[in-house]
Design a protein around this nucleic acid. Sequence first.
DNA 1: GTATATGCAAACCGTTTGCATGGCT
DNA 2: AGCCATGCAAACGGTTTGCATATAC
Lengths: 146, 146
Amino acid sequence: MANNKNANHNGQTVVKWLSQGGLRPTRQRVILAERLIGDGQNRHVTAESLFAISNKRSDKVSLATVYNTLRAFCSVGLLREITVDGSKSYFDTNVSDHPHFYWEDSSDLVDAPAKELRITSLPQVPAGAEISKVDVVIRLRRKLTE
Amino acid sequence: MANNKNANHNGQTVVKWLSQGGLRPTRQRVILAERLIGDGQNRHVTAESLFAISNKRSDKVSLATVYNTLRAFCSVGLLREITVDGSKSYFDTNVSDHPHFYWEDSSDLVDAPAKELRITSLPQVPAGAEISKVDVVIRLRRKLTE
DNA sequence: GTATATGCAAACCGTTTGCATGGCT
DNA sequence: AGCCATGCAAACGGTTTGCATATAC
């Protein structure tokens, strides 16, 4: 593992991030967290996509651990699970409330700017219920010749 | 198969419904369609839930056929697939655009009145894309003592 | 008669779990 | 020492598929 300034900086960021969720910085968690938030960008991954990245590198993490770790991150609020496609689970490093674009052909999930979505009225919730969260997914297809 | 007026009426409704999708009214399709739209009410089913109903009756349909038939109905626009939960697919007999309530504890999916949802602004779609559909799922949890 | 639909069982794929090993504190 | 995390492989649950049989037109 590289020991340059950048790696150290990221490593510390990641350890801090983990501690926000009360999670101990084990080797695998640090590796995965770095791949999730290492560059400060929001990211959407599936367990398989995160596992695929790790297979390309020297520091490997088992698939089961990827699953367990994603679940752990989610349950302490470090990640958010997004359901857009019945066949797999997506995890979002942006845990704030915001809509998503979902490319139907490539199965890519990306954030949509929350400010541009304005919902002025929501259906009245049934008696005895409260809203846990409102998911807005804008499904996209590639436009053919215009 | 019953031959009374009601059954005939439903049977004809269902045959008409199937023909709207260009589907031949086979025995199994008619049985399933009747359970979906037979009473004129909107319904949300999973393959398993529809299959479970059929097991309770004399006219059975195999699970594989339930899956294939739901897919067939969907692909000709007679049903709409709703994704709310990674683990199973829901199918909605209401094919118009409308939001859904999803009870997180019981995994029940119900329609929410479309008129009560007002979206006045939607994020700008990326270049080269067009909106296929906008899914709005209002996740509910049961309110504890008030 | 010919194309299409059905049923069964086996395959499939993403995900979870049991259990033995290994690492923090 | 004790607890928690990891890794493997096997189990799992929902869904799809191959293929032989049956049905609609």
